[in-house]
Design a protein around this nucleic acid. Structure first.
Lengths: 196, 196
DNA sequence: ATGTCGTAAGTACGATCGTTCGTAAGGCGA
DNA sequence: TCGCCTTACGAACGATCGTACTTACGACAT
C-alpha cells in the first residue's frame, strides 16, 4: 500500500530539514537559509540536502509550508473545541500571543519575520506567504461574522476587524522581540474594547 | 571655518552611498547590503566604499541614520505647520500613508522592512532601529495627548492609541506591498472611528 | 537476477562576500 | 617646502554561497 521505504525515508529527512529551517528562518529569515549550515545542523551532507531540495527556492517554499503546519497545530487546531464566535476569537488571540511569546519559533512569528523580506520579491515564496496571510485573516473575519450572527457583538465589519486584530498582533510581536513589556496587554485592552 | 575639502568630499561620498543604501535596504534589507554592489551603483570602487565605512555594521548604522533623515523630512517636518492635536495627528497619518504608498523608498516603509530582520539580533543596528521606532511612537502619543488637552477627543490612552495607530500603519504597508487594495482606506476608517 | 529509482555522500566550479593591505593623489598645517 | 591625513583605487585573502556533476548503496519492480 504505502510501501517504498526509500521515499518515506526521504520524506522524513525533508521534514527534519524543514523543521530546522523554520527555526532558522524565524531568526535569520528565509534568505538566510543555506544548504551548508542546514546540513550541518541536521547531520547530513551539503550534497544530500541539495538532493532533497533541488533549488533554494524550493527549500524556502517547503519551509513555509512546514511553518504553516506547525502554526495550525499550535494556534488554530487547539481552538476547534471552543464555540464559534467571540469565544473562539478570543481563544485564537490568546493562542497567538502565546505562540509569539513562547519560543515556538525562536525568532517569534514566522510570517512577521519573513513577509517583509519577500513582499517586494515576486515568486512562489511570496505567493505562499501571502496566501497563508489571507487564510489567517479570513479565519479571523469568519469568527467575527459568527460573533455577529450570534448577537455577541454589533456594528463591526468582519474584514475590517480582522485587519485590525492582525495589525495589533503583529505589533505586539515586534514589541516582544524588542524586549518591550506590555505589548500583549495593549492588544488585550484594545480588543476587549472592540468586542465590548 | 570648517574647511578641509577632503572630509567634506568624504562626507558627500558617504551621503550618496547611504542614500543609495537606504533604497536597496528597503527592498533587500540591511543584511542584503554589500560593498561591491553599492560601489558599482554609485560609481566607486569596492575598496573605496570599504574605506569610508570600515565595517559592514557601521555601514548599516549609517544607512539607518540616513533613512531617519529622509523620513523626518518627508513625513514629520511637513506637518510642523499644522496645529497640534487631532489635526496634526491626521496630517501625520496621511503623510505616512503617502510615504508608504509612493515609492519614497522603493521597498515601502524602511522600518517595516528592517525591524523584523534585526529584532532578534542584538547590536547597534537593532538599537538604532528600536530607538527610532520609540521616537515615532512618542511623536504619535504626544499628538494624542495634545488632542486630549484641547478637548478634541476623550477617553483615549495616548500611549495605547499610538500603539494602535502604528500597528494599523504597518499592516497597511504590508497590504500595499502585497498588492492588496484598500489597506489605506481601512486605516482611515478605523482611525476616524477612534478619533470620532 | 537484472535494471531502475531515490537517497546520500563527495567533489568541484564560479561567484560573491567582508575584510585587509599597499599605493597613489591631493588638500592640509607647519 | 615638507610631512601628515583622508580619500580612493586595485588586488588579494579566506570563507561561504548555490548548483551541478559523479559515485555508491539500498529498495523496488520485472
Amino acid at each position: 500500500m504505502t510501501g517504498d521505504q526509500r521515499v518515506t525515508r526521504g520524506m522524513r529527512s525533508r521534514s527534519t530539514i524543514t523543521r530546522r529551517a523554520v527555526d532558522v528562518a524565524s531568526i535569520e529569515g528565509l534568505s538566510g537559509l543555506s544548504f551548508g549550515s542546514l546540513a550541518a545542523d541536521v547531520g547530513l551532507s551539503k550534497g544530500g540536502v541539495a538532493a532533497l531540495f533541488p533549488t533554494k527556492e524550493q527549500l524556502q517554499v517547503a519551509t513555509v509550508e512546514s511553518a504553516r503546519e506547525v502554526f495550525l497545530e499550535a494556534v488554530v487546531q487547539p481552538t476547534s473545541a471552543v464555540p464559534s464566535g467571540a469565544a473562539r476569537l478570543k481563544a485564537l488571540i490568546e493562542r497567538w500571543i502565546a505562540y509569539a511569546e513562547a519560543p515556538l519559533f525562536p525568532g517569534g512569528c514566522f510570517w512577521a519575520a519573513n513577509l517583509p523580506d519577500f513582499d517586494s520579491r515576486p515568486g512562489p515564496v511570496r505567493d505562499s506567504l501571502a496566501r497563508q496571510r489571507r487564510s489567517w485573516l479570513a479565519l479571523l473575519a469568519e469568527q467575527v461574522s459568527q460573533a455577529i450572527a450570534a448577537g455577541e457583538v454589533t456594528g463591526l465589519d468582519p474584514e475590517l476587524t480582522a485587519f485590525q486584530i492582525d495589525a495589533l498582533l503583529n505589533s505586539a510581536n515586534i514589541a516582544m522581540r524588542l524586549g518591550e513589556t506590555g505589548g500583549a496587554d495593549k492588544v488585550r485592552r484594545v480588543i476587549d474594547g472592540l468586542l465590548a
